[in-house]
Simulated assay, not measured.
Amino acid sequence: MRTYALTVFAQSGEKLLDESFTATSDDEAKSIGQARLEETGYQEYTHRCVTPEAKLILFHR
């Protein structure tokens, strides 16, 4: 399992969500990140999900 980071920002730059979660692959992490964004209603806010190596796997501006 690897630890991924999901961060959501308001237009002002304030962090609205900053959390970590584990997944077995980048594809699984992308799905988990998208589901979490839908749960919180943040899918249209600026967000990113990164791997432990800081590779972007999910991004919206």
Rank of each mutant, 00 (worst) to 15 (best):
D27V: 02
K55D: 09
D26H: 04
Q43S: 15
F9H: 12
T51M: 05
S31A: 09
H47S: 04
T7I: 14
K30T: 09
A54P: 00
F59P: 01
D18T: 07
V50C: 07
A23N: 07
G41F: 12
K30N: 03
T7V: 15
F9V: 12
A54Q: 04
K15I: 15
I32C: 02
A10E: 10
E38A: 14
L16F: 12
K15W: 10
A5P: 03
D26G: 07
A5M: 09
S25L: 02
S20K: 14
D18R: 12
K55Q: 12
T24M: 11
I32T: 11
R48V: 06
Q34K: 14
A5K: 15
E28N: 00
T51D: 03
V8Y: 10
S12G: 11
L58H: 01
D27T: 08
L37W: 11
D26M: 03
T24Y: 11
E19G: 08
E39K: 04
E19W: 02
T7E: 05
G13V: 06
D26Q: 14
R36M: 03
F21V: 04
T7W: 05
S31T: 12
A54G: 07
Y45M: 10
S31C: 11
A54L: 07
K30S: 10
A5H: 14
G33S: 14
A54D: 03
L58K: 07
F21W: 08
L37M: 11
L6M: 06
K55P: 01
S12L: 14
C49K: 04
A35W: 04
S12A: 09
K15Q: 14
S20M: 01
L58F: 04
A5C: 10
L56T: 01
A35I: 00
L37Y: 09
P52N: 13
I57N: 00
T22P: 11
F59A: 08
Q34L: 06
S25Q: 00
Q34F: 05
S25P: 10
T40Y: 02
F59G: 06
Y42R: 00
T40G: 01
G33N: 01
G13F: 12
T40F: 03
H47F: 08
C49D: 05
L37K: 01
L6R: 11
G13L: 12
L17M: 09
T7L: 04
Y45S: 10
E38R: 11
S12H: 08
D26K: 06
R48N: 03
G13K: 03
L56K: 00
A5L: 09
Q43F: 12
F21M: 05
Q11W: 10
K15D: 08
F21H: 09
L17R: 00
G13A: 08
K15A: 12
L6W: 03
L16E: 06
C49Y: 05
A23L: 05
G33D: 15
Y42M: 01
S12C: 14
F21R: 01
L56M: 00
L56N: 02
E19S: 03
L17W: 07
Y45A: 11
A29Y: 00
C49G: 04
L6T: 04
L16H: 05
V8F: 13
V50Q: 08
P52W: 05
Y42V: 04
E28Y: 00
C49A: 11
Q11N: 12
G33H: 09
L56E: 02
E19Y: 07
